[in-house]
């Protein structure tokens, strides 16, 4: 018996764990969804996430859902090196042939991974952009970090990316502070895509946007994913966003993944009590 088509994982995460505090041997066992707690009752350590394992495949979009404090943003920030995990390993197919743990890489190699191999889009444009530097300058910064030096090429690439993300190119030389929320988010997406990464990390990208703007950003992400053939991790507490964007979904609670499945199966036939509660709470 064989699969009709074998895909390769782009990213493989094993045993990701992040604790805040001195830690004790009971931290992991005493926290999590069964205990309904993130704080270890023995030593007071906060376990933001633990025992997180998953794989992301070529051209696949994985949703990560869960309430505030479930660890979904922590997971993304660890992947982007914004946070350093206490334990665990992550392998990127594009880095050392998928043989080396990216969290063990030296700072220089980490910068390389961040600038070339993945792009991150934050919930708040302020975290991903310098709002007082021009839109074009924001993208240029990323290109320069990847050793692009030719001004003409940088300008051409920046205007291509802005056009592609539906930001009026004639506003390239204006700072994003003067842009609407939806437009700032699209500049962030353009910047994340600057160096052609195969993996895009998206943290609550449509939260806080008007519904009309939200629809446009969702449609943009879908067409970019399709045309560029990239993989994406979409963290959101909005199950509607996850339904429209993702193939598979992981559900997190108290720092653990409690259930993973096809997105339609998670929404129509959730297995874990917490997922059932989450889906049944949908308006």
């Amino acid at each position: 018996m064989s699969e009709p088509h074998e895909g390769k994982p782009v990213l493989n995460v094993q045993g990701l764990e992040l604790r805040y505090g001195r830690g004790c041997p009971f931290c992991v066992a005493a926290t999590g969804p069964e205990a309904a707690a993130n704080r270890c009752p023995h030593c007071g350590t906060i376990v933001a996430c633990a025992e997180v394992d998953f794989s992301l495949y070529e051209e696949e979009v994985l949703g990560v859902v869960g309430e505030s404090g479930s660890g979904k943003t922590t997971l993304l920030r660890c992947l982007n090196f914004d946070l350093a995990p206490t334990a665990g390993a992550a392998y990127l197919a594009d880095f050392e042939g998928g043989q080396a743990n990216i969290w063990d890489a030296n700072p220089q190699r980490k910068r390389y991974i961040r600038n070339h191999l993945m792009g991150m889009v934050y919930q708040n444009p302020r975290d991903g952009l310098d709002l007082d530097v021009t839109a074009g300058g924001n993208i240029a910064e990323r290109l320069i970090m990847a050793n692009q030096r030719h001004v003409g090429h940088i300008r051409a690439r920046s205007s291509y990316l802005l056009d592609r993300t539906e930001v009026p190119v004639d506003r390239m030389d204006e700072p994003p502070r003067t842009f609407s929320g939806g437009m700032q988010q699209r500049v962030q997406i353009a910047k994340a895509l600057a160096n052609g990464p195969r993996l895009l990390l998206l943290d609550e990208v449509t939260t806080g946007l008007d519904v009309s703007v939200q629809a446009r950003v969702l449609d943009l992400l879908r067409s970019l994913q399709r045309e560029l053939g990239i993989s994406m991790i979409v963290v959101s507490h909005d199950l509607g966003v996850v339904r429209l964007l993702t193939h598979r979904t992981a559900v997190m609670k108290n720092g653990r993944i409690v259930e993973t499945g096809l997105t339609d199966q998670i929404l129509e036939d959730p297995q874990h009590p917490y997922t059932q509660l989450l889906v049944n709470s949908l308006l």
Binding site: E3, A215, R216, D219, L244, R248
Partner: peptide, 24 residues
């Protein structure tokens, strides 16, 4: 799940009772 996604991509189509699509 991967196998199911591949079958859906290549082989099996589904028409639900209600259409659900990206707005706009």
């Amino acid at each position: 799940d991967r196998g199911v996604l591949n079958l859906r991509r290549l082989d099996i189509g589904y028409v639900s009772q209600f259409l659900r699509v990206v707005p706009r």
